[in-house]
Design a protein around this nucleic acid. Structure first.
Lengths: 211, 211
DNA sequence: GTCTATATAGGGATAGAC
DNA sequence: GTCTATCCCTATATAGAC
């Protein structure tokens, strides 16, 4: 749990506790996050990362054995964001209950996502690239992520189709706002989160009275 | 207009009018669409496409001068899908009017997208890759696409933030359903489109009476 | 911790035979 | 229209000097 929270410190953020662990390593990850998000993992070469930092490729290999390991570390930070949602869903008995709890879970999830826009966007744009981590131990352990649970819910036959469609739509709506990137980058996270919560609620909670 | 419609014939579909123009070329595009969607444009090699067709890379170069040209041709087919929406938006005077027409435009757009799921998904997953077409003549001519218009609307200061957020969310919602891929692939297009229309309408049309 | 140099693999693209 | 063979470039990754 403590370890989980530690993953959430903002990349390159202010409070660097304990040993001043290699600022270079952090700087590499910062640049990697930025470029992976912008261009995609596979389109980003080590040379590119190294150049932007003013070092050589070989220098990077001192900090990360493989290119994959950067992807892995960034992905781990993201996992932490979904844990509350997972815990909440796991506490329920069947898929219909999980579907009905969706508005509540989503409410909280929206906050997490909006507040970690860049990390989330990195994930959205690279989730296919994560396949390369398939046979990585550390990843296997931490895996079983939200994405998978959600897919399972979306295909569950216990839930009416209309409800499943709206669940998929609500995730998409959230993603859409984050992916609109530039458009809302000036809006304070709390304000944006509130607007998005209102929107997805209308999407996912049936209208009370006749149209 | 006629040419535009012709682009919409289903890839590898039944009615092949005029000269039986090279079935090989069509088969290449079919495979390309599938692999580009699945793995991404840049992650798909010509060797891979060729292998699946049982030919060699060089054979592909007979039909397409450059790899880009496959991307271009698929992209062109997609452009056609957005034209009604563009025409409808272009008929209006200012951004606020366009924003208010959004529900109507979206209604129609949902149909187009759902009925051409694979092509749309191809686009969503590869729109960054389209940058390589930046200096292509044929593309320039046809360009000025919906994506751009939408971005412009989303950043327009004439439209209240809350409304813009909901517009972004509605696009995302549609994308989310399509991207959920497997989950709804069994559902007939018309039924799915109707469900999605209902959902995005709740998102984008303000609730009539007090909560 | 960072460098230069190199090994190895795979990509897109072209030439020329059939 | 499709093949074989090849060119050139860039990618990840490693070895070994400083």
């Amino acid at each position: 749990m403590a370890a989980r929270d530690e993953l959430l410190v903002p990349p390159g953020g202010p409070a660097r506790r304990g040993r001043p662990r290699g600022s270079t390593r952090e700087r590499i990850l910062d640049v990697a996050l930025e470029l992976f998000t912008e261009q995609g993992y596979e389109q980003t070469s080590l040379r590119e990362i190294a150049e932007r930092l003013g070092v050589t490729k070989a220098a990077i290999y001192f900090h990360f054995e493989r290119k994959e390991d950067m992807l892995l570390e960034l992905h781990m930070r993201l996992h932490a964001l979904g844990h509350e949602a997972i815990d909440e869903l796991d506490g329920l008995d069947d898929d219909q209950q999980r579907a009905d709890a969706w508005p509540r879970v989503l409410d909280h999830f929206v906050d997490q996502v909006i507040r970690n826009r860049e990390l989330f966007l990195f994930h959205v744009r690279n989730h296919r690239a994560l396949d390369v981590l398939a046979d990585n131990e550390a990843h296997q352990a931490e895996n079983e992520d939200i994405q998978q649970r959600i897919s399972r819910l979306l295909t569950s036959e216990e839930i009416p189709l209309a409800q499943r469609v709206r669940m998929a739509a609500s995730i998409g709506a959230l993603t859409g706002v984050v992916a609109a990137g530039g458009a809302f980058s000036g809006v304070p996270p709390d304000e944006l989160a509130e607007l998005v919560r209102g929107a997805v609620r209308d999407l996912v909670v049936p209208r009370p009275l006749g149209r």
